[in-house]
Design a protein around this nucleic acid. Sequence first.
DNA 1: ATCCTACAATAGACAATGTCTAAGTCAAGG
DNA 2: CCTTGACTTAGACATTGTCTATTGTAGGAT
Lengths: 138, 138
Amino acid sequence: MSDLLERLRGRGWRMTAQRRVVAEVLDGDHVHLTADEVHARAVAKLPEISRATVYNTLGELVSLGEVLEVATDKRAKRYDPNAHSPHHHLVCAQCGAIKDVHPGGNPLADLPDSERFGFTVSGVEVTYRGVCPNCATA
Amino acid sequence: MSDLLERLRGRGWRMTAQRRVVAEVLDGDHVHLTADEVHARAVAKLPEISRATVYNTLGELVSLGEVLEVATDKRAKRYDPNAHSPHHHLVCAQCGAIKDVHPGGNPLADLPDSERFGFTVSGVEVTYRGVCPNCATA
DNA sequence: ATCCTACAATAGACAATGTCTAAGTCAAGG
DNA sequence: CCTTGACTTAGACATTGTCTATTGTAGGAT
């Protein structure tokens, strides 16, 4: 299953039970978990894992570029394990559900130099807002 | 100065000293303040204003569509008084500075039906990430 | 002008999320 | 098998946001 673990080991990551569990949680289903949800799932596999470790590990994975932080709402960061396939997000304004989407077009190209204010622009995030079919009928 | 206050009064908003101060803070300079920064500036004009009132008032202004919430980082919501001119944001990854930008293109049109998953898509936010000239030289 | 009443403001407790520290533990190389 | 430095832990702390019960007040009614 996990080439994620392989990649991490290859980069000299010290492998511990806690880190393996966090990596497995993220590698499991490709949903967008909050830090607390990751912690909850990690505790299910390894009851004595602490909150600080989960936060630390998530931060390290982000630094390594293995997962992405998503700031779709303002409540909590979410972590997106699908870092190796560029994509954007479609968020339900009511229930908060998040879908990955792959729009056409290239937003980076749409930003002319005159609108860059001297910034070195390195990336772009696109967040579509709407209402999901579930919430629309409710 | 403030047609903002006029608009609000016209909508039957009950005008109080506190609400006027919050509106004035937002109407003042078109930067992107956090709730706490709004509170700090409001206190400077009206020392006895409470934190809850600032949060309430900001929430009401958002509901009325007079200001926008921006979730560029995960620390705190920011409030954008420039709600009447559609625009996107360019954020410095280091210092957090935010600039309004007006890219070409239409991201909404770039999202095909096949990528909408039955959602009723109502809006889109585009956040460019980069490093500002200031931080680049430092 | 004053009075009423519903709506707004207040202080402060509470909640949610994230960060830090000091001390103990352990993976991995020698 | 030992050593060492990186990792983990528990829990205090910090920040941001929300809620409640009480007090105050804007604006219409008299």
